[in-house]
Amino acid sequence: MRAVLTKLEQAKQLDRVGDQIQRGIWSALPRRWMRDLLHGVWLGHPLHPALVQVPIGAWSASAILDLLPGQRRASTLLVAVGTFGAVPAVIAGWNDWASLSQSQRRVGLVHAIANGIGLALYGASLGTRLRGRHGIGRILGWSGLSAASGGAFLGAHLAYKMGAGVNQAVPELHRLDEGWHPVADLGALPEASLVTRKVNEVPVLIYRNGDRVTAMLEHCAHQGGPLGEGDVMKVDGLVCVVCPWHGSTFRLDNGEVVHGPSATDQQTLPTRVMGGVLEIRMP
């Protein structure tokens, strides 16, 4: 299985189809607020994995009820809930997929195909059940759950092995020693400019606005892009930093995500000034 997944990650022949789909998604979702909504920026958490609980939960429960006598109506209802509930999950998933790196998109494409097959099988299962052909409906449902389970396996591989959709910056917190660490002389920090310093070899982004100084992890939560090379701009009156790689936008006063594709906030670090020296520590 490891060898198969490695080959899938390296399957460049998928890129031609994937690149066309990616352009189609960006054309279908031309406005940034649409993409932010589907990324889960408003939630502070990726939306897709939250939405998939509806179809997976409903379909799994339906598969169990199909093994019990007298549960046709309840099972059919759950198949319908799962099938219609899968639609927003699919849309949010494709939106996230379009912002992944190329190797991640290869695995994500097969993940989407497997789930698409599962959805089609469940749609057919619902249709046959409504026509009273519950035996065939059960077989189609179990087949759909098998396909969706394969898709879920690939989704877990994307998240846990390839890091898709997870906060790429937070693991660097574990490289910081306990206690306060000196970063820079406060008087040497320029006003309203991005400054990058390393603490325990961890890049930290410093931004000074008058007497207020903010420190946050410098690698972007989305794909680890260098925020220190990003632009500072105002968004809705808030001073933000824009990642130069994919455009994720974070408030510089508290790290809150304003625009995706990142759906999680940028980790900030507590600061203090001792003897004119700015110090930071782990949260």
Rank of each mutant, 00 (worst) to 15 (best):
R133V: 07
S146E: 13
D177T: 09
P261S: 13
R105F: 08
Y207V: 01
G18N: 01
D253I: 07
L186H: 10
L130Y: 03
G225L: 06
G108E: 02
D19T: 04
G93T: 03
Q102G: 07
I117Y: 02
G123A: 13
A112P: 03
R2F: 14
G225C: 07
I64Q: 12
V81K: 01
V170H: 13
I25A: 06
V87N: 11
P182F: 05
I139A: 14
R212V: 13
L119H: 03
M216D: 05
R16Q: 15
V107T: 05
I21C: 11
P203Y: 07
L65I: 06
V52M: 12
A89E: 14
A89V: 10
I206A: 01
L38S: 04
N95C: 15
A98Q: 10
V54D: 11
G18F: 01
G275I: 11
G276K: 04
A147V: 01
V87W: 08
I56G: 09
V52H: 06
A263M: 14
A156P: 00
D36S: 13
A221P: 00
N254P: 03
Q71T: 06
I91L: 11
D36H: 09
R2A: 15
L78A: 10
G135N: 13
E229W: 01
V242C: 10
D265M: 03
S27R: 12
G228Q: 04
V110A: 04
V204D: 04
A74I: 00
H134L: 09
G275C: 12
L14I: 11
V90R: 03
A147Y: 01
S99K: 05
G108W: 00
P69E: 15
R175M: 02
S75D: 14
H259G: 03
V258M: 14
A164W: 03
G70C: 11
N254G: 07
V90N: 10
A152M: 14
L8Y: 13
E256S: 07
R212G: 08
L154N: 12
V87K: 09
S262T: 08
V79F: 00
A114D: 15
G225Q: 07
S149Q: 06
T196V: 07
A80K: 05
W33H: 12
G247E: 08
L119S: 02
W59L: 02
A120S: 13
R138V: 13
D66F: 06
A120N: 09
L238T: 09
L100T: 08
A58G: 12
F84T: 12
P171Y: 09
R131K: 15
K7T: 12
L145V: 07
G155V: 02
R73F: 10
W33Y: 12
A63D: 15
N209P: 00
Q168M: 06
P244W: 03
K234D: 15
R175W: 02
E9D: 14
L78G: 10
L269S: 05
W97A: 01
Q267A: 04
S27N: 11
L176H: 03
L227M: 02
P190R: 01
A114S: 15
Q266V: 05
S149K: 07
V257C: 12
V232F: 08
A215M: 00
D185L: 10
M233F: 07
A50N: 12
T83F: 08
V170I: 11
I113K: 00
L121E: 08
N254H: 08
R31N: 13
M233C: 12
G137D: 14
S262L: 08
P244L: 07
Y207W: 01
G275A: 14
Q20W: 15
C240M: 01
A86E: 07
M233N: 10
R197V: 08
L29W: 11
M233S: 13
